[in-house]
Amino acid sequence: MGGLDDADRSHAYSECERVLARILTKRKAAPVDTPIRVLITKIGLDGHDRGSRIIAAYLRDAGHEVVYTPPWQTISGVVRLALQEDVEVIGVSSLATDHLIVPDLLRELAEAGLDDVAVVVGGIVPDSEHAMLTDAGVGRIFGPGSSRDEIVDAVNQLGAAVRDRRSRAEVPA
């Protein structure tokens, strides 16, 4: 099978990379071997779900497993869902002030022993209310215009960190 010089070889390798890259473009290289489990949800009263659906599709295309709920989940419902689904990240979409009760969600998560779950909020959160959320433990806030990469990267990082912490814990609480 000879006849290949180094140039051919390196060409073949780079071709290989290119094709694989094309096939894997949508996979967005999850940094871990198993998908991150993410809960995408809406709590409170608002029903606009265009954003949460798009985020769910982004994360699916990034190779993650997204447990998706319709709007209007109760806080206690989200806590139990997070528990049963063993998610690493919870993404709350808020377009109409529902972020005001996200601190309550974080408190109830902690009470259920789920304080290691990373919580991110996406949507419309006025600057003046960012601190209220980050003080309560929200990991990231994504405003309108956040890019796919920004969101996927953050979920990758936060999810990997949660997984890392959990793998070091003997038995979950």
Binding site: G44, L45, D46, G47, A96, T97, D98, L100, I101, D104
Partner: peptide, 20 residues
């Protein structure tokens, strides 16, 4: 929004009342 959900003001978390 509480009204849209078919709820009265005494049935929902207070911080969400009248914001929208």
């Amino acid at each position: 929004n509480s009204g849209f959900r078919g709820l009265d003001c005494d049935e929902v978390p207070a911080p969400l009342l009248g914001t929208c």
